[in-house]
């Protein structure tokens, strides 16, 4: 059960909190973490299309495997200017 720390920005921080730890099943990937979060807040699915992930400070894909202690960032694109 790897435990990862979630870091979310902008609207996703408002939905999922500042910095929280989440336990996931062995072999879980970044995309599985997102699916877990969506079960908490189904309407966040509207943000899925533009969303990117980062693992330990580097952009990564949804297929990236999660390791114990990873810091996973949820990066939505911002609209304002």
């Amino acid at each position: 059960m790897p435990v990862v720390r979630l870091v979310a920005f902008a609207r996703l921080r408002e939905l999922f909190g500042e910095r929280r730890e989440i336990a996931l099943p062995e072999g879980a990937k970044v995309g599985d973490l997102w699916d877990t979060l969506l079960r908490e807040e189904p309407h966040a699915s509207a943000l899925a299309r533009g969303l990117r992930f980062a693992r330990n400070g580097a952009l990564c894909g949804a297929e990236t495997a999660l390791c114990e202690g990873d810091e996973i960032s949820l990066l939505p694109p911002f609209g304002g200017g």
């Binding site: 943000l47 533009g50 969303l51 694109p77 911002f78 609209g79």
Partner: peptide, 9 residues
């Protein structure tokens, strides 16, 4: 690009 309407200005 995000889904129209999902990201506010």
């Amino acid at each position: 690009a995000p889904e129209p309407g999902s990201v506010p200005t």
